[in-house]
Design a protein around this nucleic acid. Structure first.
Length: 539
RNA sequence: GCGCUGGUAGCUCAGUGGAUAGAGCAAUCGCCUCCUAAGCGAUAGGUCGGAGGUUUGAAUCCUCUCUAGCGCGCCA
């Protein structure tokens, strides 16, 4: 890895001047302007205070001491940058590395740590909509990224298959069911109004006929159970279509069944007090604004209590860290959950909550409110039909989770070709075509020297791939992969346009360029795979 | 009122202590007898919400402030 090598060279040079610096304090950056060389460091400016000297003078002292193997030229520039111009032959070695490592190029060191990432976790009371789609794309891409970086990853979905929302589902479905039998019944304001429920009611009606039309209680119970089961199946199917597969589905009912909440309350005893007939948990001891109710005065527990149990279950194995992906409307929940975990002597950082800002849906220039109640939500299913999995997934992960963004439905559907994902896929397809065309030539990795600007830019970007993986996994930000992909596509298109890759009059050069094309294609395919996007050979 | 997240080009967004603030889309101008023009090259477009401060250096850090979204239930 070039960065590391340069860091070491610089560190050694600085030691030669009688001063020690940490390797990690030496920042190597790729230059934006090729006049500034290939890589640069600002270390001399950082050391200005220590050395009490002008940064340019320090830079000069460093470059006099530095080992110049693989380096063509070193310059002091601007306010005190040190610019490195790397030998072409040395840069080209990355192609050999990629040929050798193939799909494992960029893999992080294998780690013992398990990362459990919980996302989507939608209530099985309707189809997934746009907001869930963002979470699904984000969570799955993050999972892929962490796996690539060497972690053991568990993708987990928590199903709230108990509680008021399920009863409400049962009641809503029951009314739809009565309607199917010509019985007039109005959906209450707070019922689920979406059209999905009609389809589910119809399906269940086929199984039971008129059995429950005169038995509201049994009917509602039946529809609550069967309806949520059916919706969960629909959710799983939609997710699979979106290329999102979970390792574990955990059920609230099962969590409570296997782990009596009374016992949990006993374990939390020292943090619990009673007030006005309710049980409060002293989460304020751990930074929460106030204490939280876990058992209401009517004897029912709040959602929070089984959720604590659930998080403990996720932590049952040693060496596990948790990631939850939440919508912004749940951010108030973070501190109390971390507080509960700290009551069991876990470090607060064992749980990392990624807050995802909500998606605003724009249609005909105006905001369309998403709500299960009013039934105006755009479902994941419809989204996939309209814009396709690749474009949709790319669209959702290409922006950081903290970005509030507008999803313009008209734009997404009508101008899907404007989606940057096609730019990247097209770059991949072009490389596939040219490799096919040049398949008789073979490849060349020894003494591979490519010195055109476009070739060098592409090579340097391939070199940066492992570092990008590491960085995006560390900060848990898959959008950085999308940024990388865009830049990679741009370099590929430039290279393709500027350099004739298959040239019968220059076999050696063609072999070298085909090798670069093959390496770039492989990296592009793998990068796209990390965000769940396909890499077509033809477009 | 308090808290979380935003405010950067016409639009959607990157950039979180360094060189002239970038990309895609939209706009203008070039480029296919030549490996896929879903492309390339060039031009134009920005008081980085505002004000103060720290620093050799600030879009980036600090304080205040304006503004948008979301929270602040014995709901889930």
């Amino acid at each position: 890895m070039i960065e590391k090598i340069l860091q070491t060279k610089i560190k050694d040079a600085i030691s030669g001047l009688g001063h020690d610096v940490l390797l990690t304090d030496i920042v190597i950056e790729t230059t934006r302007d090729d006049k500034h060389g290939d890589y640069a460091t600002n270390i001399a400016m950082k050391l200005a205070q220590v050395f009490k000297k002008n940064p340019r003078d320090i830079a000069q002292l460093i470059i006099e001491k530095i080992d110049r193997t693989h380096i063509n030229k070193i310059e002091v520039a601007g306010p005190g940058f040190i610019n490195f111009f790397i030998d072409d032959l040395y840069l080209g070695q990355v192609i050999t590395d990629i040929f050798h490592l193939k799909d494992h190029y960029g893999d992080g060191e294998k780690k013992d740590e398990v990362i459990n990432i919980e996302f989507v976790s939608a209530n099985p009371t309707g189809r997934l909509h746009l907001g869930h789609a963002r979470g699904a794309a984000l969570g799955d891409s993050l999972a892929r990224l962490l796996i690539k970086d060497g972690y053991n990853v568990i993708r987990e979905f928590y199903v709230n298959d108990a509680g008021v929302q399920i009863n409400n589902l049962g009641a809503s479905l029951y009314i739809r069911y009565l309607n199917l039998h010509g019985i007039a019944a109005e959906l209450p304001e707070d019922a689920y109004h979406s059209a999905d429920l009609i389809a589910v009611a119809q399906k269940l009606n086929e199984e039971i006929g008129a059995k429950y039309i005169n038995d509201k209680e049994l009917g509602e119970r039946y529809f609550a159970k069967k309806g949520s089961d059916l919706f969960l199946e629909i959710i799983k199917d939609d997710l699979a279509r979106f290329r999102v597969l979970f390792d574990i589905y955990s059920y609230e009912t099962k969590v409570k069944e296997d782990n009596p909440l009374d016992e949990l309350i006993k374990k939390l005893d020292q943090y619990i007090y009673q007030e006005e007939g309710a049980l409060f948990l002293k989460t304020s001891l751990f930074g929460d604004d106030k204490d939280r109710v876990i058992v209401k005065s009517n004897g029912e527990h709040t959602y929070f209590l089984p959720d604590i149990q659930y998080h403990l279950i996720k932590l049952r194995n040693e060496n596990t860290n948790l990631i939850n992906i939440f919508g912004a409307d749940h951010h108030g929940y973070i501190t109390r959950m971390k507080a509960a975990l700290q009551m069991f002597n876990y470090d607060e950082n064992i749980l990392d909550v990624i807050i995802m800002q909500l998606v605003r849906l724009i249609k005909d220039g105006a905001e369309l409110k998403m709500s299960k109640r009013t039934g105006t939500a755009v479902t994941l299913d419809e989204l996939i039909d309209d814009v396709g999995v690749d474009a949709a997934r790319y669209f959702f992960i290409a922006k950081s989770a903290s970005t509030h963004f507008d999803f313009d439905l008209d734009l997404a559907v009508s101008k899907s070709n404007a989606n940057p994902v096609f730019y990247a896929q097209y770059a991949h397809a072009r490389l596939s075509a040219v490799l096919e065309r040049g398949k008789e030539f073979g490849f060349k990795t020894d003494n591979l020297v490519l010195s055109e600007l476009g070739e060098r830019n592409l090579i340097k970007h391939l070199i940066a791939y492992p570092l990008m993986i590491k960085d995006s996994a560390r900060t848990r930000e898959p959008y950085k992969v999308a940024n990388y992909i865009q830049q990679l596509a741009a370099y590929i298109h430039s290279f393709y346009t500027e350099s004739k890759i298959v040239d019968e009059t220059n076999i050696e050069l063609s072999k070298a360029r085909l090798s670069l094309a093959k390496a770039a294609k492989l990296v592009m395919k793998n990068a796209l795979h990390l965000i769940g996007v396909s890499a077509p050979d033809k477009m």
